[in-house]
Amino acid sequence: MGLFQKLAFFLGIKRKEVNVLVIGLNNSGKTTVINHFKNDEEKVEKTEIVPTVGFSVEKFQNQNLAFTAFDMSGHGRYRDLWEHYYKDCHGIIFVVDSSDRLRLVVVKDELDLLLQHPDVSNRRIPILFFSNKMDCKEALSSVKIAAALGLDKIMDKPWHISASNALSGEGLQEGVEWLTQQIREYITNKNL
């Protein structure tokens, strides 16, 4: 990126709007993750976060990129909704509850469904995994989560996994910075 472009970005002239889809099973911490990035006046008290019904749309900024996050409900009966948003999104945040060993297979099943979907399978869409709830006693490490989900088999898409604690905000910034970078590249490549 040239100096001029950098300047332009810095001054906010060339501001881009991107859509990211936040998915993951219920009780994995999607809404809490999004809540962390919101402005202070929009933030909800962490104890007041309730299970999302359907989905909710939240906006936040990172490095001059305006994110529109579609916070999807992770409940089994709302997971059908996810696929309707695959088409228009520039990046996917997949939140995994690393302490829920029982449902790791369900996460894998949902991930496979996502990767096989025609709106996703032939695009180089970046996927960010949050191995959330790293503070829990029985939490699995992000390496183990990556192995369990078979992330090493994803060859055609950039992906990144970062261990996070959405309550304290640990690990979230790192992940989103990676995603911002990837989305920028994705958009520039697409425009070329």
Binding site: L25, N26, N27, G76, D100, L102, R103, V106
Partner: peptide, 8 residues
Amino acid sequence: QLGQEEHV
């Protein structure tokens, strides 16, 4: 239901 999963 077991844990968060309904159909176990």
